[in-house]
């Protein structure tokens, strides 16, 4: 047997490489570069596009309404006409001459009462309908008809019933906001998993405990959908209701301004209404995300 030959390379002297480590100065991450700048960037990406669009719209509007004989005021004219309304929302110059901020607050007060009532009653009625087959069969068709009635159509009836503009306006808010809250709550209650009902049965939770420990948390995402639709509708309705009932709210202000041909004031009031409606929606949505965080995660 022959052993396989193993070829070995003759050892060669390997030249030793010499090197020194060069320390490159690494820029220390400062608070400015890690926190402030990215935050500013995020804010900029969200605010710059709408601001640019707003500028464009204002420019087009200005061009369209600048020529003499234009029926609507241009932005520049609104600025000069309604300067006091724009810069100071909270002035008080007389019983009927107050800033738009005050008027919005008065309207919001009515909305708060009407919407609050709608929230409480809507959730309770929705629970009843969701929980009881008979209540659903009896009430659901009626509600489905009633909810299509325009809020303003309720106004004469409520004026006749309450004989006062303040409760009538509140009633209109209530009747506008209550339907989506009822219907969404009922759907939420009907969708409570049987598992949770079994848990409640084994623990022998009474009706009240079942209501606030199982039903409300479990149906919370649905309820908040209803509440969010409701707040939007109430804000839509209050302006219309106040136009008809008078008083000092933002709706009446628009009607009053129209009667005295102050078109610039109307435009400013519209901007107020839009911004407040937006804020209201954001508030309810914000509360919803905080409250339903646990439920939505399942």
């Amino acid at each position: 047997m022959t052993m396989p030959l193993i070829k070995t390379e003759p050892s060669v002297e390997i030249p030793q490489a010499t090197a020194t480590v060069l320390r490159l100065s690494t820029p220390k991450p400062s608070f400015l570069t890690t926190k402030v700048l990215p935050a500013l960037g995020a804010v900029a990406t969200r605010t710059i596009p709408p601001l640019v669009m707003l500028g464009l719209i204002l420019a087009v509007w200005q061009i369209l309404c600048m020529k003499p004989g234009a029926t609507l005021p241009a932005p520049s004219k609104i600025w000069s006409d309604a300067y006091d309304l724009i810069v100071d929302p909270f002035f008080v110059a007389g019983p009927q001459d107050i800033g738009l901020g005050w008027r919005v607050l008065i309207s919001l007060q009515r909305v708060a009462v009407g919407y609050g009532l709608a929230g409480v009653i809507g959730i309770l009625l929705g629970t009843l309908i969701g929980q009881s087959v008979w209540a659903m069969r009896g009430l659901d068709p009626i509600f489905q008809v009633l909810r299509t009635i325009s809020p303003l159509a309720w106004l004469p009836i409520s004026l006749a019933a309450f004989r006062d503009s303040q409760p009538s306006a509140i009633f209109v808010i209530f009747i506008t906001a209550v339907w989506p809250i009822i219907i969404n709550t009922a759907v939420g209650i009907r969708n409570i998993p049987q598992d949770y009902r079994n848990v409640a049965a084994v623990l022998r939770l009474n009706h009240l405990e079942f209501f606030y420990k199982i039903m409300i948390p479990s149906a919370a995402p649905y309820i908040f959908t209803g509440l969010r639709i409701g707040i939007g509708l109430s804000w839509l309705a209050i302006v219309a209701a106040e136009m008809l009932t008078g008083g000092v709210g933002i709706g009446f202000f628009i009607w009053d301004a129209w009667n005295s041909s102050r078109l610039s004031d109307i435009v400013v009031a519209l901007v107020y209404i839009g911004l407040v409606g937006f804020v209201l929606d954001r508030i309810v949505a914000g509360v919803a995300t905080v409250v339903t965080r646990g439920t939505a995660a399942s």
């Binding site: 598992d195 949770y196 079994n198 848990v199 948390p217 439920t295 399942s298």
Partner: peptide
């Protein structure tokens, strides 16, 4: 229960 039935909000 088979599918744990824990309340997800607690």
């Amino acid at each position: 229960f088979q599918n744990h039935s824990l309340l997800p909000w607690l």
